[in-house]
């Protein structure tokens, strides 16, 4: 059906690859991930090629994105956190470009699949856990013992803190995925109303003005959400990395 709102999220194989019974096919999702990475690289490499002391338009945009992420990381994790800048910047740019790519008609939205966002979140939490244990050893576990808790409450609080910590990758990935999925479905449903209503003759065409206005408004909102979710993901990444840097208090 033409206005099936779920159809846009279907995975289709482009180049079938199978290694040792594992389906490693190159899909439309892979294609758009490659396109996202290529677009980010092209943007940054080409815009900073001139290396002007007075930046041009493109170079200013690239410098702005650098300053934006660097400021965010410095605020959340201090200057020590800057060693994670490549990770946070790559994540931010990848999610931002993937979300923005999703706004083109007929394009696939990589971040609307929970397995993709979950992999990104696990990358972050894996970095936090591994770096935390590498730097602080078992002192990293102090993260789960808040100060000033009476002794008999410690076991309970520790379990709650551990569950709270383990829920982070899940909530991080669900947030990004749910926002992109819900936004794109809403957009498609309202756009579908326009088509089906205008098939009903004059009254339908007049009536379809309302969903058309909504579609335009939601498109604008979706651009905001696309940026905001990339920002939220990066900010939370910074906060979690801060835990890895300073677990004790």
């Amino acid at each position: 059906m033409a206005n099936d709102p779920i159809k846009q999220f279907e995975i289709s194989t482009i180049v079938p690859i199978e290694i040792a019974n594992l389906d490693l096919s190159f899909t439309n999702s892979s294609l758009f991930m490659v396109a996202t990475t290529a677009a980010v690289s092209a943007f940054l490499v080409l815009s900073t090629k001139g290396r002007g002391l007075v930046p041009g338009r493109w170079q200013a945009a690239a410098e702005m994105s650098y300053e934006f992420v660097a400021g965010m990381l410095r605020d959340a994790a201090g200057t020590q956190g800057m060693r994670f800048f490549p990770l946070v910047f790559s994540l931010f740019m990848f999610i931002l470009f993937a979300n923005m790519f999703g706004m083109f008609p007929y394009f696939f939205t990589v971040t609307s699949h929970i397995i993709v966002t979950f992999a990104l979140a696990m990358l972050v939490i894996g970095t936090v856990v591994i770096y935390g244990f590498m730097k602080h050893g078992l002192g990293f576990l102090k993260l789960f013992v808040p100060e000033g808790v009476p002794g008999y409450l410690v076991p309970l609080v520790v379990v709650i803190e551990v569950i709270s910590f383990l829920s982070r990758p899940l909530s991080l990935s669900v947030r990004l995925f749910a926002n992109m999925l819900a936004g794109h479905i809403t957009l498609k449903v309202f756009a579908g109303f326009v088509v089906s209503l205008s098939g009903l003759g004059f009254v339908g065409i007049v009536g379809s003005i309302l969903p058309l206005i909504m579609t335009v408004a939601i498109t604008a909102l979706e651009f905001l959400v696309a940026f905001l979710q990339a920002y939220v993901f990066a900010v939370l990444t910074c906060m979690y990395l801060n835990d890895a840097l300073h677990p004790s208090h």
Binding site: L143, S167, P247
Partner: peptide, 22 residues
């Protein structure tokens, strides 16, 4: 833990222990 998460997100409770130290 869910309630704790929500209160932290909304800023009703002090952030995770490390944030205070900073």
């Amino acid at each position: 833990a869910g309630v704790l998460n929500v209160m932290r997100t909304l800023g009703l409770v002090a952030q995770a222990p490390s944030a205070q130290a900073r």
